[in-house]
Simulated assay, not measured.
Amino acid sequence: MTISLTKKLIGATVAAGVIVALAGCGTAPAPASSGAAKPADSNFKPCLVSDSGGFNDKSFNESAKNGMDKAGKTLGVKPLEVESKSDNDYKSNIDALIAGKCTLIIGVGFKLDAAIAAAAIANPKLNFGIIDSIADPDGDGKPDAPNIKPILFDTAQAAYLGGYAAAAWSAQAGGNKVGTFGGMQIPPVTIFMDGFVDGVKKYDEDKGGKVTSVGWDKDSQKGLFTGAFQANDVAKQTANSVLGQGVDVIFPVGGPIYLSASAAVKDSGKKTVMLGVDSDLAVADPSVADQILVSVMKRIDDAVNTTVTEAAKGTFDPTPYVGTLANNGVGLSPFHSFDSKLPKGLKDELTALQSKIVKGDIKVASPSSPK
């Protein structure tokens, strides 16, 4: 069940013929068995706490919830899922889950880093997980407690493919320009943007093209950000600043800010298309399906599902989980309604690029890639 907390606990594919994408270092997440399986420990209680974006963000929070719900259904348990309304809620939400006898608590997102680390240190007999972070507030390069499982994704690899596809689309459209902007300037956001601009450059190298990208400079690590993950006037104005530069494709990286980009595109009257992030956005939010060329996905749902089911069996493993193209942790969604409109041969080129990345023939690197 999904609940909100204040000071008290109130309640408790593959791209069609194209690319695969999904999950982790070590053992890749596998879909849980369809049959109900009771957890080994009858006291097992998995719990999830969102960041301030909430569970209806059509992005990473919602994907994590889907994974938790799936695991709960398979295991025959009712997870506690708490929604943070602001950044100030993280500590109190986690404290309430601990008081509620949760045995596994997963925090969704980089912004819960310090709160998860502090809780894990104070509660060494409980298991914790955190998405898009290693829970390392002290900066020594490793989790601050041995009972934390980092759930990470090298999304630069998938965004590289997305950038290549965006460049191909723009070249076909004739504008030869694509753009991106982000929510907060944090590693889980900039890693998408790094891969994206490098994918555009790869297209130009392979095709002798002249497609340029705006909104992010990988070398200087500077670009356009809204400062938050809310769909609001600031996000729309930021999207307009990218659209005003004549882009054929826009890549909003930051959960709900895609809604602001969508509105800005519609208001502009232009034929600019968007790239989605985290989930298959054309499926997650059908209202924007006709604007989504493709989505750069990270399978948070599978990672959470696997983490929960392993913990239920008593085999919780704090080894960092890193989703890559090689283990299907990240990748591209189907192109859906745009499939028949793609430049000839693009999907084969993307398949070949993915193969080269997996084999190591192409190195996709970002300062924000999991180490």
Rank of each mutant, 00 (worst) to 15 (best):
I191A: 11
P143M: 05
T307S: 05
M193C: 04
A119Y: 05
K271T: 15
D219C: 02
V77Y: 08
K142C: 00
I186H: 04
G107C: 08
A282W: 08
N328T: 07
V358I: 15
C25M: 07
K266I: 12
I250A: 05
P46L: 09
A118Q: 14
K201W: 01
T74P: 01
G35N: 14
I151W: 01
N66T: 15
I186G: 05
D278N: 12
E81G: 06
L332C: 09
G209W: 00
C25L: 07
G17T: 10
G276R: 04
F251A: 06
V330H: 01
K207C: 01
W169I: 05
P188V: 03
P187H: 06
N127P: 00
Q185L: 02
F55G: 10
V197T: 11
P286N: 06
D302E: 09
K125D: 10
T319Q: 13
P150H: 04
D285F: 01
C25Q: 10
G223Y: 06
P252Y: 03
N88S: 13
A158K: 04
N328V: 04
G163W: 03
P79I: 12
V234S: 14
S50N: 07
V20H: 02
S50M: 05
D57G: 10
D194T: 06
G76M: 07
S86M: 06
K236N: 13
A145I: 01
